[in-house]
Write a protein that binds this DNA or RNA. Structure first.
Length: 1237
RNA sequence: GCCUUGGUGGCGGAAUUGGUAGACGCGCUGGAUUCAAAAUCCAGUUCCUUCACCGGAGUGCGGGUUCGAUUCCCGCCCAAGGUACCA
């Protein structure tokens, strides 16, 4: 009986499948254990040996846990929606479903060969309608939820609507869009249905937004931040541009804090947690509002009573005159209205014929920013531009309401009540924009920051000098800072060039320069901006802000070091405390006030929070960072111009993709408002299309669908018995959402589906969810840290909030398996010789155009690289090529090359100078398929290589010893070589005219480099071949033996013979001379010791995920038992169980041969018994001054004194101390002896 | 820059409540077996010196603590991964 792994493995794989050996039950007496792998995307390339690494580890763990008496759930499935299948469909027209199905078959075949203990009865595929039905369903739940910050959980959106009806949104504390305004219940009730929907959308956990997205033109879709690497798409490396599009977004930002907090509760690798922590990017600080000073005023011209803006003081003056005139001659309607307004029945101050910007408005309440216009009167020069005028005023944050003359004259009460209503609703200056603005009592009383001019007068700051006043111009710049304690160190402000206020505040004088700067920075791509971090650029706007405490003028700059997408897109610049601000200030010669005691800031900023205290800072003097921060925030809150704030970097996740092969949204539109299709109609099946590209008019591929099951040609819902619109009045035809969901949708909840994979009424049954609860062990790659693993945690928390799952973290423990790297092989092509120093004898200027490609062996490559480097170092001065280096190792070879290929060394150019840059480009490493190597060596199989591609057919190869290994020679033609040598080597067997290409036994040696394993690098190793040639058990053992699971390591097939040998030895321990030889005798103490040592070590190793050392221990055990010629059943039977998680096939076979009827996976892991490891003696290492010199075997029960006696009387000890008296003798019983001389 | 992980023979790697550095495997060297090869078995294999014994050095570098440091502390260097004008 030989160990025939092919036969054995096939036999047991079949057995397991037929007996459903690994099917998990949803109830059991045993404790549960859920072991999960990240399911694969089934790509066309199939598996390489890197893929199964994690699966093998988890499989070992799962099998081990079964032996330990657990009810183990170990499922597998496919993340089968994705871009590659779609790209393939675009190229070939093949339906992605077909491609995917084929790929899955390949994957399954490959996986089955490795002997995994998956419960395939629970397989899920994200592209199956029975699965994505529930992805769509979860989407609907998200749509119907909002995040309540008080309850700290998601709640039904209906609750919110109910509250709005009763009291508006004044007291609502929920995650919402930044631009959400305050409204009352009256408002809510007067809003149209559509308006209500628009407001509700601001709270929903998934919502449509016109947002700037990462658009990839090459892929025709948007990409999420985590799908972009270094400014290009992760798949394919295509460029990305920013583009505004209407997209579904997921309000993951609502969960930022809980996602952060949850990390404390889960056993995940620290680096992964750190990645998520950084990605969420919480920073604590304060939000502070700076008022903008009017440019007119800041120029010292300020006109009395004009607390508002116009770019041009001349015009302002004219307009003022005009306004005066109009005030003096009101129309009848104006007069009536003014009577009411000025009576202050409204408790708010109104102004008549007031100048706002370049416009004169009829009436305005400045503190509420409400403009009231009365029609029927000619507004002079604005009349045709009414729309533009409205827009400009709205941009400034004003709300405009218009009345007809008739209305005012006919029913003034109604007009006034309308105005009252408006006033109730309107928040203060729209730009104020911080979260709880209405909750600030000062503000809501209309006092706080939005001063009237009168109040400004009072507050006129002496430091501003005559003619300066602080103006309430409606513009506030809100900044976020983590160092509010440094507020007295502010010497300028910087806005992102994209900041919405930039053009509004810029003075006429600076407008051209500011525009120029904006154009310049906007034109730069994200990538350029990143590459160019060092360059300082910026532009003064001419405008000033007012320091909230000192009332000093603070110049406002714009600069592209401030990012529009982070915080508020504006910073208060504290040059003494922030290096970027410091550099900026130095560069533009802005003052750098120092507010740190005893700190030198003459060369750089001091960003240390500790080791100093604040000075030159009024009420903060003498305080440290913590105290000052606390104090300043109190003051800011007191003044109503700032508050404590926690800022997160995490952005909401874009959820729409302009792709075909993804989950369709269960969404249609009525009057541009999205509507969810009722749950009972799910799944919304992905329709067939003829063309997988976007439509001609730029809609996503689903726009090509000619018919959906329930749709007409125009991609609209029809009202029929299958789908009926939600309410009676909506009968008819409506457009559908044409985007599909992103790849991470399906993978964000699949772990729950495995618990109850065939449930057709729920995404998973309560009972199953409560039984399995969470994944106990999740194994997968760390590349998913900020994608899948964050989104999945988000969805899980959401489902938890809705009471749909029992735990809010889906995976208790997670292990990142390292990557198995490939050993890429390279050939080195010489090209471009003509321009880099060589000239063709035949007059051709470049070898690149030669019909024969020229490759040199790796030794030459290394030499060439060395030469290039020397050349670079030695500068570009004239070079005598012959003296400076050796293109080829010796003169003869050089001549051979030159003569044979019609090349002439271009030694002496007219300038005597060689172009170095071209040199470096003249030799190019090219990946060569590792299957073209001879066996496991680095020698290239030239024939195979040259046959692989047409362009290499006539390639010429220079071997390691400089010989020409020309394939042309084998065709009997030979290039005009120097033929003497070839003639001599001419092989008789090749026949007339043929010569051996391999002259003198030279070889072409490829270069090797460790790289990520990938089809495109031709360095993949196929697990099928390994299984074929070594067996699945060998593959499993070897992958584990390579090194620690979590570490990246290169694959080297050569080493697999080690585990092959182990399996053979294991077999021979049982099967001797072709038959099973096993004895029922009692084992010896030594044999028991080996067994129990192994049991202990392996159990520990598996628990610690140290699979590599287990394999070592198996080897040791088998080696030792072989040495003892052990054939005792009492040893060999338990040993099989211990090894079986790693090598399931061979152990099943031997287990059966030992007479067992049931699968070894049903056995019980042997228990460790310490008694067998008890030792009676210890081989003491005896050290002198800490250096081990010899060992001494002594009984373990000796006392310290007895040990000392034994050691000191030992002959070697006497020899080492050579008569001297030892200073100290350290004796640790059972450990060591150390003698200090 | 910041965060994280790591750095040990020719190679993959082992050993950390501080106690014999290099387990196990690959590769290499020598031997047995064989007509020969493969396979198998045996012995050796950190480096330097030496025929050998002996001796010396040695876990990225420099210090420190200790009877004793791959392990602990301080300061650096290098590599990989993540992240970044994040205010």
């Amino acid at each position: 009986m030989k160990y025939n792994y092919n036969e054995i493995e096939a036999k047991w794989q079949k057995y397991w499948a037929e007996h459903q050996t690994f099917k998990a039950e949803n109830n059991s007496e045993k404790p549960k254990f859920y072991v999960l792998d990240m399911f694969p995307y089934p790509s066309g390339a199939g598996l390489h040996v890197g893929h199964p690494l994690g699966y093998i580890a988890s499989d070992i763990y799962a099998r081990y846990k079964r032996l330990k008496g657990f009810n183990v759930l170990h499922p597998q499935g496919y993340d089968s929606f994705g871009l590659p299948a779609e790209q393939y469909a675009i190229q070939t027209g093949q339906h992605p479903a077909i491609t995917t199905e084929e790929n899955i078959k390949t994957y399954r075949r490959q996986l089955d060969k490795i002997g995994f203990s998956f419960d395939w009865s629970r397989e899920v595929r994200t592209s199956n309608p029975d699965y994505y039905q529930w992805t769509q369903w979860i989407f609907i739940q998200l749509y119907n939820s909002y995040y309540c910050k008080d309850a700290n959980q998601a709640r039904p959106i209906a609750e919110l609507a109910a509250v709005f009806k009763i009291e508006g949104n004044i007291r609502i504390n929920a995650a919402c869009d930044d631009d959400t305004t305050i409204f009352s219940s009256d408002d809510w009730n007067t809003f149209s249905k559509k308006e209500q929907q628009i407001i509700l959308a601001k709270y929903r956990l998934t919502y449509l937004s016109e947002s700037e997205v990462n658009w990839c033109p090459a892929l025709g879709t948007v990409l999420a931040n985590d799908e972009i690497v270094n400014g290009v798409s992760e798949r394919g490396g295509h460029p990305i541009v920013r583009k505004k599009m209407k997209q579904w977004s997921m309000r993951i930002s609502a969960y930022a804090q809980r996602l952060l907090d949850g990390l404390q509760t889960i056993d995940w690798p620290q680096p992964l947690k750190d990645s998520q922590t950084n990605w969420i990017g919480r920073s604590e600080g304060a939000s502070v509002v700076f008022k903008v000073l009017s440019p007119t005023l800041s120029e010292g011209k300020g006109v009395k009573d004009v607390g508002y803006l116009t770019g041009n003081p001349e015009i302002a003056h004219l307009l003022l005159e005009k306004a005066k005139e109009m005030r003096a001659n009101p129309t009848q309607a104006e007069a009536i209205l003014w009577e009411q307004l000025k009576s202050k029945n409204l408790e708010l101050k109104f102004r008549q014929q007031h100048l706002i910007g370049d416009f004169i408005v009829d009436f305005v309440c400045l503190s509420k920013k409400l403009i009231i216009e009365v029609d029927g009167k000619i507004h002079d020069f604005q009349v045709e531009k009414d729309e533009e005028r409205t827009k400009i005023l709205e941009d400034k944050g004003y709300k405009i309401i218009r009345f007809k003359n008739k209305e005012v004259i006919g029913n003034i009460d109604k007009v006034i009540s309308k105005i009252e209503n408006e006033l109730k609703v309107l928040p203060f200056g729209k730009d104020l924009g911080w979260e709880n603005k209405v909750l600030s009592p000062t503000l809501s009383e209309g006092k706080g920051v939005n001063f009237d001019n009168d109040e400004f007068e009072k507050r006129k700051s002496p430091s501003l000098g005559e003619g300066f006043r602080m103006g309430d111009l409606g513009w506030d710049i809100e900044v976020f800072t983590t160092r509010p304690d440094t507020i007295f160190g502010v010497s300028f402000m910087t806005l992102a060039p994209e900041h919405e206020l930039v053009l509004k505040i810029t003075t006429d004088e600076y407008l051209p320069k500011v525009r120029e700067y904006i154009t310049k920075t906007a034109g730069r791509s994200e990538r350029e901006r990143m590459a160019d971090v060092k360059t300082i650029s910026g532009q003064f706007t001419g405008a000033y802000a007012i320091h909230p405490f000192t009332d000093e003028k603070i110049p406002i700059w714009i600069g592209d070091y401030v990012l529009a997408s982070y915080g508020t897109g504006a910073v208060m610049s504290v040059p003494c405390g922030d290096q970027r601000d410091y550099d900026f200030a130095k560069y533009f010669e802005i003052p750098i006030p120092n507010i740190f005691a005893d700190v030198d800031i003459s060369t750089e900023a001091f960003s240390d929070k500790e080791n100093t205290f604040i000075t030159n800072s009024d009420f903060l003097n003498g305080l440290n960072y913590k105290q000052a921060t606390q104090k300043v925030i109190e003051k800011l809150e007191e003044k109503g111009i700032g508050k404590r704030k926690i800022n997160y970097r995490l952005r909401d996740a874009v959820f729409s993709r302009q792709r075909y092969w993804g989950e369709p949204f269960p969404v249609y539109y009525v009057d541009d408002i999205p509507q969810m299709i009722e749950e009972k109609y799910l799944p919304i099946i992905l329709p067939e299309v003829e063309n997988y590209l976007p439509t001609e008019d730029g809609r996503p591929p689903l726009g090509n669908a000619t018919h959906w099951a329930w749709c007409t040609q125009t991609n609209t819902i029809v009202s029929n018995d299958k789908i009926s619109p939600p309410s009676g009045d909506l009968g008819g035809v409506f457009p559908l959402e044409l985007n599909t969901m992103p790849g991470w949708a399906g993978s964000s909840w699949y772990f729950n589906r495995y618990m109850d994979a065939h449930n057709s009424t729920e995404f998973a049954g309560k009972e199953a969810l409560n039984y399995w609860k969470e994944v106990d062990l999740y194994i997968g790659g760390s590349e998913h840290a900020t994608g899948h693993l964050l989104y999945a945690r988000f969805w899980q928390k959401f489902l938890f909030d809705l009471g749909l799952v029992p735990v809010d973290e889906f995976a208790r423990k997670l292990i990142n398996q390292g990557m198995i790297l490939g050993m890429s092989a390279f050939v080195y092509r010489i090209s471009n010789l003509g321009s880099s120093g060589f000239r063709d004898k035949l007059g051709r200027d470049s070898v690149g155009n030669f019909s024969n490609k020229l490759f040199v062996s790796s030794l030459y490559y290394k030499e060439l690289i060395k030469i290039f480097e020397n050349l670079r170092i030695e500068s570009t001065s004239s070079l005598d090529f012959r003296r400076n280096g050796v293109f080829f190792r010796d003169q003869k070879i050089e001549n051979d090359i030159l003569n044979n290929f019609g090349l002439e060394l271009y030694r002496y150019t007219t300038s005597n100078t060689l172009s170095l840059s071209l040199y470096a480009n003249s030799i190019i490493p090219i990946h060569v398929d590792i299957s073209f190597l001879k066996g496991l060596t680095d020698e290239l199989n030239i024939e195979a290589f040259k046959n692989s591609r047409e362009e290499y057919k006539n390639a010429i190869f220079i071997g390691e010893n400089g010989k020409i290994l020309s394939p042309t020679l084998s065709e009997g033609k030979g290039v005009s070589t120097n033929n003497d040598e070839i003639e001599q080597d001419k092989s008789p067997s090749l026949g007339e005219g043929f010569r051996m290409g391999d002259i003198g036994g030279d070889k072409y040696i490829v270069g090797r480099e460790v790289e990520k394993m990938s089809k495109s690098k031709y360095n993949t190793v196929n697990p099928d071949e390994i299984c074929e040639q070594h067996g699945a058990d060998s593959l499993r053992l070897f992958e584990m033996f390579l090194g620690p699971l979590e570490q990246s390591k290169p694959w080297n097939t050569a080493g697999i013979t080690g585990v092959d040998g182990f399996l053979k030895k294991l077999w021979k321990l049982y099967i001797l001379n072709d038959s099973l030889e096993i004895s029922d005798e009692n084992p010896s103490a030594a044999e028991f010791k080996i067994l129990h040592k192994t049991i202990k070590k392996v159990a520990e190793d598996i628990e610690n995920f140290s699979f590599n050392t287990s394999v070592s221990n198996f080897m040791i055990a088998v080696n030792e038992l072989t040495a003892l010629k052990c054939n005792k059943r009492a040893i060999l039977e338990p040993l099989l169980i211990v090894i079986s998680p790693y090598a399931p096939h061979i152990t099943e076979e031997l287990w059966t041969l030992l007479g067992n009827n049931e699968s070894i996976s049903k056995a019980v892991f042997p228990s460790f018994e310490a008694q067998y490891l008890v030792e009676s003696t210890k081989n003491y290492p005896v050290s002198f001054n800490g250096k081990m010199k010899f060992t001494l075997e002594l009984p373990l029960d000796l006392t310290k004194e007895e040990i000392q006696d034994a050691v000191m009387n030992h002959q070697k000890t006497i020899q080492f101390i050579a008569g001297k008296t030892p200073k100290t003798i350290i004796i640790v019983p059972g450990k060591i002896v150390n003698i200090v001389v």
